[in-house]
Design a protein around this nucleic acid. Structure first.
Lengths: 127, 127
DNA sequence: GCTTATTTCATACTTTAGTATGAGTTCTTT
DNA sequence: AAAGAACTCATACTAAAGTATGAAATAAGC
């Protein structure tokens, strides 16, 4: 705040004495307050917003999840049962059970609900 | 952009002719660019961030979830089994089953995974 | 104080989820 | 073309999850 007032006075003095061009002084003032506007806005917004987590496709490969297994994981996350997933993907429920088992194994989860949480923590599912 | 340049020229002219005080012109410039800084920043941040959804406690009451039932819902959401929730809350697994059934009924969910999704959509659980 | 809602628990049951194993098929990569 | 990975499916389990019902104890509101 004090620095701002000082800048203010210096600007006034500089223009009065004619040491610098008026354009330069105005440009500096503009730039400084432009920066201040960005800074303040950033602080306010950071309290009310959080960054969107992008899906980490490299981590999916790292974990060893196959394309189909990840697909099943996504369906689990939206709350579908094995039967419903089977119908949606046009395969048998047994096939889905196999995929689910593999997903749980690879995510080190005991249950599908835990798998969802782990997957979100690993950023392979949107939160 | 053109408006900015115009403002720039007007400021220069005003100071040169001495029609207004230097302080006023500088203050206007400062305010305008401060505002521009905020505007630009807001647009950029809105692309990379999303607002945090606050928990809607009124909706919890509206749905008719009791304190204990909501507590159980939260534990479900972090991926715990009925047994684990029972141990955590120092009650029997049968009690948890009763609570879970009531939660599913009130949220109109068929499964706990679906309940999690519905609860998040209703903003009674953090996403 | 009385009523009502909440919390607790049990028993018995049905349904879904998850494991283990084996095996045939397709797709890919060398 | 052969090898390996991925996808499919079945059978037979075990383990959880979820339903239905009834009931007792406690807490809260009138």
């Amino acid at each position: 705040m004090l620095a701002l007032l000082a800048l203010f006075q210096i600007s006034k003095y500089t223009i009065a004495t004619g040491n610098s061009s008026v354009e330069t002084v105005i440009a500096i003032i503009a730039l400084v307050f432009f920066g201040i506007g960005i800074m303040i806005n950033k602080r306010i917004l950071h309290k009310d917003q959080k960054p969107i987590q992008e899906i980490d496709y490299n981590k999916i490969k790292e974990i060893g999840l196959s394309k189909r297994e990840y697909e099943v994981l996504c369906e689990i996350a939206i709350g579908l049962s094995n039967k419903e997933i089977a119908e949606k993907l046009f395969v048998s429920e047994n096939t889905i059970k196999t995929h689910v088992s593999n997903v749980l194994l690879k995510l080190d989860a005991k249950r599908r609900t835990q798998a969802i949480q782990i997957a979100k923590k690993l950023q392979i599912l949107e939160q």
